[in-house]
Write a protein that binds this DNA or RNA. Sequence first.
DNA 1: CACCCCTCTA
DNA 2: TAGAGGGGTG
Lengths: 333, 333
Amino acid sequence: MLEARVKQAAVLKKLLDAIKELVTDGNLDCTDEGIALQAMDNSHVALVSLKLVAEQFESYRCDRNMPLGVNLTSLTKILKCAKDQDVVTLKAPDDADSLGLVFESPKEDRVGEYEMKLMDIDQEHLGIPDTQYDATITMSSSEFQRICRDLAALGESVKIEASKEGVRFSSEGEVGNGSVLLKQSAGTDRSAGSSSKKAVKRDPDEEDEEEIEEDEKPEIDDEEGEDEQDDEDRSKKRKSNGKSKTAKKAKKDESTSEDIGVSIILEKQVSLTFSLKYLTNFAKSAPLAREVSLHMSNDVPLLVQFDFEQGTLQFFLAPKVGWGLILTNIHAD
Amino acid sequence: MLEARVKQAAVLKKLLDAIKELVTDGNLDCTDEGIALQAMDNSHVALVSLKLVAEQFESYRCDRNMPLGVNLTSLTKILKCAKDQDVVTLKAPDDADSLGLVFESPKEDRVGEYEMKLMDIDQEHLGIPDTQYDATITMSSSEFQRICRDLAALGESVKIEASKEGVRFSSEGEVGNGSVLLKQSAGTDRSAGSSSKKAVKRDPDEEDEEEIEEDEKPEIDDEEGEDEQDDEDRSKKRKSNGKSKTAKKAKKDESTSEDIGVSIILEKQVSLTFSLKYLTNFAKSAPLAREVSLHMSNDVPLLVQFDFEQGTLQFFLAPKVGWGLILTNIHAD
DNA sequence: CACCCCTCTA
DNA sequence: TAGAGGGGTG
């Protein structure tokens, strides 16, 4: 059976808001390591991979692996019945054909119990290669969202160019062209460092527990050993490692993106073009995490990753291969 | 070439929000005196006249006169890509077929560069007569907006009656009739005074200071020598000249209409009826200026004027000549 | 393209 | 609790 207890319904709500427009149905793969969901988006262009790690639940028990086929639209509806601070307990017996959800108010004076029908979904579990990316950009998630929204007003796709100096997002369209250049924050230049060669490790937790140190963050390793409840420091610690200088006071009315800064880990310059429709959708996850990281290599799907307290949400999107790019490749041969 | 630098994108955004629903295309007439835009609204009922004076730009350079035909919808879209505090630089070479816009974050860690296609627009430059109005009402712009919005819920047009005692806005409709009477603030009665014969002033407040003409603005800055660079205090201080009672702490974000009061300069009583649809549109400029002035003479187009730090925005609208009014006129003979 | 509703922030 | 901004619908 499964019994997983989440401290705050809010995180589940945000998660569903983040992915429900991309994916309508999916299997919640429950194991003793946690709950994962992996699915192609409805048009089979993007891949969504969510992982909620067992240790980050208030309590977690899963006796055996269970794929729970859920309709995310339904789940969203039911989660709307929970207040943000409610404690949520997910329950499913081993032979479940439905998922139970219990919402308890913090004062324990209200209990909501819901049951959602499950469905059978053919498991197309995709192996996500543990890619080594040429460029990893970490930035404010709200700034990322802002840029995607802005450029989406101009054109349908965005070219992302990462160099040591910064990252440029540019788009072209009928009304005109536009580009946004974010300069790398001072003191965060870690390009060409050996650490930059590490692969992304956040999601494939299982695969490389030891390799966790894409930017020399020993503390993160600690958490694996004794990650009781200090989990919420997890993401913060990581941030403070990378950019202590961003600790300035936060001017609230400027969407606080200022005090996060941009860090670029660059193995090789990259220039890739993506559909803004999808990126805008990915960016809806901004409420989940202050930071987002973009992982890119030429001709390889982009990985957009949000790390939050309870786990990780990843989006993969293949670059647009327009005529320009094809010609480029031909000539490059 | 043109290169004009604006300290805060916010003012441009507000300007476009203010006029984009009335005018979709127009020429930005750039001269060494500044940037002007004059256009009939899309249904050729109202006239919009915007003037941004060169001196109020952070820097301004315009080598020769250039009419830049812009689509205001496109310009609005591009301005949405700027944050409110961004520094905006408008650029156009002499033979430009596009307008460049550069948005720089205050911290200079983000640069947005946009290019907007220009269009050829037949210049129908209208001479606006320097009319002497029988009545000039100065009031809180947000109060004006509120009244227009309220009355628009009742009827399609509003009758504005200005007398020495105050100004009455009234409307009639299916659900009922309504009127708002604003009494003139104490101490501002200047009707039949010689000053009331002056032509439209940029900022009627200045009339309180005897004879300060609209072109002598620079001196106003001087006399307030203590406000170093914070030009944004300028307009506030000016107000405090005219009505010291408004000198209280100016809470900027809540445009408290209360402490602005109503002043009426009356040469002759007027009673005119206007389409609320248009007035409501004009009133959208409220974020630009704390005050608005309404200039009226019987049977002459209304002038609604907003004076802000960088310039002036004027709207002209012919009165409705409904049967009621025609009959009135006939009987008046 | 405009209008209305909902959500988030102040 | 009210206002502003963003998203969605007609």
